[in-house]
Design a protein around this nucleic acid. Structure first.
Length: 273
DNA sequence: CCCTGAGTACGGTTTAAGCC
DNA sequence: GGCTTAAACCGTACTCAGGG
């Protein structure tokens, strides 16, 4: 379950790499059950771990910290109580049981102390290897040691494909309406499109009979969804055309896997519009 | 046509590991 | 010992189907 947090509605995957957050939610409603949600959350986490390895330990060690005063990471000075520099020190963390440290006291080596410390730090860094150890599971995943859950993967459903717990018809976007008692009622197909509002069409029970009216409404809902998809594609092409000169970056396609288009900086988010 | 709420997208806060 | 950052945690906003 490394990097995966259970949620009332499914699972949440969250990993951070060099300030970039890789985050995705896997709801049971979108993936056809809790089991599929978890399996696909794990697939996705493994893909992130494999394709975005952590920084090399050495690279991270060499990155200058805000409080560094020497311009060389791992090299600092030891100041005596009077404010006098007592020694220059090279120190490197290899592991919990191995911390390299050499002091170069100014008293014994004089002005060469600083350059000796820098030289020593370089030697210490040569003994540092591998990637940042973020979590024991990381290495196993990268080596392919984890057991990939077998079996098929259901594709993610769009919102309009999700049948809600409160749905009465069994088909999303299709409902039975009865304006008043005594009215034979009608089946209604409704589809919402952002910025355009809803389209709906009614099929009266009086005219078609109950079952026929229902299947006509279901077929109509299918047409509405197809039209919505077509409009969205058209809009996308138009958009691409408008910006073809300024943006050479290809859009992430739906089938490109894994899809990391959701990544964003872990801090400094712009405010919502 | 408008309100409600399920589902989830987003982004900030807290915790704790890692390192200087 | 103290600081930085990765990971976990959590609250809120948003979208759109359901329903009156």
């Amino acid at each position: 379950m490394y990097g995966i947090a259970p949620r009332p509605w499914g699972f949440e995957v969250s990993l951070v790499r060099n300030g970039t957050r890789y985050y995705r939610q896997f709801g049971k409603a979108s993936y056809g059950g809790l089991e599929q949600a978890l399996v696909q959350a794990q697939d996705w986490r493994d893909a992130v771990v494999r394709s975005v390895p952590p920084v090399a330990r050495r690279a991270r060690a060499e990155k200058l910290r805000a409080n560094n005063t020497t311009g060389v990471s791992g090299v600092f000075c030891q100041v005596a109580s009077g404010g006098r520099v007592r020694a220059w020190v090279a120190k490197t963390y290899i592991g919990q049981d191995e911390i390299l440290r050499t002091d170069f006291p100014v008293d014994s080596v004089g002005n060469a102390a600083l350059s000796l410390a820098i030289e020593e730090r370089e030697k210490q860094l040569a003994r540092m290897s591998g990637l940042a150890r973020l979590h024991p599971a990381e290495e196993a995943i990268r080596q392919g040691m984890t057991v990939q859950a077998p079996g098929p993967r259901t594709s993610k459903r769009s919102k309009s494909e999700i049948t809600r717990s409160t749905n009465s018809s069994g088909v999303s976007g299709v409902q039975f309406k009865m304006p008043n008692a005594g009215h034979p009622g009608y089946w209604l197909a409704t589809t919402f499109t952002a910025g355009k509002g809803s389209v709906c069409k009614a099929f009266s029970v009086k005219e078609h009979g109950h079952d026929m009216a229902k299947s006509l409404a279901i077929a109509e809902r299918g047409r509405q969804l197809a039209q919505k998809l077509k409009d969205a594609e058209q809009h996308e092409h138009q958009h691409e055309h408008e910006h073809e000169q300024e943006q050479a970056q290809p859009q992430q396609q739906k089938q490109a896997s894994p899809d990391f288009s959701f990544q964003y900086k872990a801090s400094g988010h712009p405010a919502r519009p």
